[in-house]
Design a protein around this nucleic acid. Sequence first.
DNA 1: CTGTTAGCGCTTTCAG
DNA 2: CTGAAAGCGCTAACAG
Lengths: 331, 331
Amino acid sequence: MEPRRRVKLSDVAQRAGVSVATVSKVVNGRYGVSKETVAAVQQVIDELGYAGNLSASSLRAQQTHVLGVLVADFEPFSAELLKGAARAAHGSGYEVLSHSGGDRHGWERRSLSRLGGTLIDGAVIVTPTVLDTEDIVPVVAIDPHYGPNRLPTIDVDNFEGAERATDYLLGLGHRRIAFLGGRNELDSSHLREAGYRHAHAEAGVEVDASLIIETRYAPELAAEATRELLSLPEPPTAIQGANDLTALAAMEVATEMGFDVPGDLSIMGFDDIPEAGLATPALTTVRQPLQAMGAAAMRMLLDRIEGREHDAHVRLATELIERASCARPRG
Amino acid sequence: MEPRRRVKLSDVAQRAGVSVATVSKVVNGRYGVSKETVAAVQQVIDELGYAGNLSASSLRAQQTHVLGVLVADFEPFSAELLKGAARAAHGSGYEVLSHSGGDRHGWERRSLSRLGGTLIDGAVIVTPTVLDTEDIVPVVAIDPHYGPNRLPTIDVDNFEGAERATDYLLGLGHRRIAFLGGRNELDSSHLREAGYRHAHAEAGVEVDASLIIETRYAPELAAEATRELLSLPEPPTAIQGANDLTALAAMEVATEMGFDVPGDLSIMGFDDIPEAGLATPALTTVRQPLQAMGAAAMRMLLDRIEGREHDAHVRLATELIERASCARPRG
DNA sequence: CTGTTAGCGCTTTCAG
DNA sequence: CTGAAAGCGCTAACAG
């Protein structure tokens, strides 16, 4: 079968012997069309398998009943959030469309400009870094740059989560704990490092500054940093990653270099993406309830759009998930 | 800051003192604009943070450089495929947009009609059931209804994968193996059941027809079926699910009912979604290389669109992943 | 109740 | 090299 032409409103109109306006009314369930006409038009719609063109209708209509989940990239973290957001949208009468803006700076603003106002009626934005204010359409942020800001926000207590993780390592007896930082301009990243430092301070353990390296959440940089760390005259006995992907990269390098995890080196993550539990050894980490966060964000967006009251900021609890990548240091 | 108005092409044109046509040319890098004009316009674009409206441009232009990944729903299976597809699109010059059509019948055709031709230049469609032919825009199917059909397709050998899984159970000594089927109208589902039957035949073990129940890949139906199965006078000693979600639902019910998995009952899945490895006990299953399948589909789509030669059908290998949910039957 | 008309924001001939 | 004008497919007044 040759690539078929898309069937459009005018095709339906012509076949049904009515105007496009009438068909449009039928499609959108507007009043002011006789039962007979509705039936006749509907019949043709079914025959032809007509489904409205989203670009065209969104350009003209004020609402599309499509909500966006805007992410920098489809990686495990955002994929989990997406699952949760989609679940929360079920039965709401809204469809969900997810757009990956590509990692470049300003992706969130760009995505929003390109889709907002026409294509989507609102958006959940995952980890925006330059956007701190409502813009074009209703927006809810997950784990944004500046912590609770002018955007309705879903996040977790990053400080407390990281602190607890460090405490755990300290409690195991570690005294040289490296920290593979994220991106310092990100609030969540900053807070995780602060939690790490605070736990040390509380325990009266001094932090060796050379053990803190910024890896920008990039696995390659984390791998490189780990190589350096483990080549030190006095290597750390534990590595805490600013997120799971970072920790997992560290684990891979450590294993390659012949270190036994957790025998020679303990590794701690943050996020609890599915890959964390699947790693060998399974990664001990701080769980963010990602799907619940995605769902909460979607619910909040729906509340905004439909004019319901809602909190401006929802903070969910983290949980330390003890698996197999941390143990007491040797000796 | 009050909800800002979207900045449009005409705003840029006005501010730069040129026509919209000229701005459009600059935005799209068309020839026939003087260097000075380009620079001036570009400056205004940056100042205003202009980013073209996707609906509008897609309506007029023949290409959007956006590719769709069309799914019925964002669940673990499609989320994995999406990760792989997105990875393969990196650096291709195409953005990816994923749309969840909602589970209703005909979602794939509807999604394609709504987005195809205007919004997206091509699509990867996950598990289409009614679409078997090219339509509007280039399409690649992952695990479609009718097996290798007229659509370029990515899949795995479902028959062989299921057969191997059943063999494994048979090899462990199981003789009463229940099969929680998927949707019989789906080719992959059909083949998995056929593999299950064939393994029995080869081993000379008769299949008890009352042990085969169609659960339509719905966890609730799988749960119900499991309850019935385990209430039988002579319950099965193993349950093989048509997919992981089904198997996981069975595991949950079995555990609730006081059965020890794998002590009293072995459970086998299919797919190896992340949740399979994370379950307790970890699910033994047949792995489909989901991310690789998503990536292969995206590469094939890119090949089609850019006019490169490519295979019409790529079949990837499955692998039996032995984890902890299967053991020898008691006695 | 139905059709005509005027755009939505943008791209693309086609004149100037 | 630049701009005026004609739509892409659809919706929303507004007449009839």
